[in-house]
Amino acid sequence: MRIFPSLRGKGADDGGEAFAMRLVAPALLIEFLFVFLPLTLGVYYSVHTVRYFQVGAFIGLDNYVGVLTSPAVRNSFVVTAIFALGSLILTFTVGLALALHLERDGRMQVFMRAVVLVPYIISMLVGSLLLRWVLSQDSGVPQAVLGPFGSSGFSIFANSTSAMGALTYNAMWRDAAFAMILLLAGLKSIPLELYAAARVDGASAWYRFRRLTLPLLKTPILITIVRLLMHFINSLTFQLILTGGGPANTTETIALRTFRLGFEDYALGRANALSFVMFIFNVILISVLIHLFKPGEKLR
């Protein structure tokens, strides 16, 4: 797979082969030890019976069959799909709106961009904890907002629909700025002359957005969608802190199920099997992303 352009014959220093290899060796070693080796070991565990850390007999795909037929895991697939799609739609829409709203480089826009980035730069744990506080009965917000509708006793985290809504809101609150930054980078690369020309031709704002911005923004939009989707499919902190998977596992996503399988039940064989299923799914998304990135073009 040669997706990155070679440097050969482009003025690169061809003589320094040994020197270059020495420079990349430590980085490769670390990645091999702490990313690729765990994956290999994980696959090995996933095809054996494992009791805590005692690896037992080879059992082929039994762990995989076990997790994929388990009702809890199946439930988590559905929950993940709902959460990821809902969060994607909400976050992307808000992110795009923010990018268009804050596109120009005025002082106000730069300040506003910094403000919306704050939920993104603080730790996910703290962000979710703060929202858990705001949305809980203890803060008084649900009562104040829902009181006039006669449901002041309503608890957001005790109802599966509103708990999922809260999770989705948490995702948007944190990551809309991330989507905005990615989309802004794309918006900046559109030449302003195009808009000027369209304006001279009498194109309305909506027409300019529809016929100029959207088509020219196609690749940044796709990259943003894939990156958000991967992030939401694998997110763990939102669920662990905000809802704890509740009520009655209705917000327990695959990542949280895997976490519990591994670190609460210590079923390391099955947990590794489920991790590998998740990993394969991610690899598919990553290969889509790499083809969208075309990093070679950005290299120069």
Binding site: F259, L261, G262, S275, N282
Partner: peptide, 9 residues
């Protein structure tokens, strides 16, 4: 690109 959660276990 690999999400950390997929690697945890």
């Amino acid at each position: 690109s690999i999400p950390i959660a997929a690697l945890l276990v």
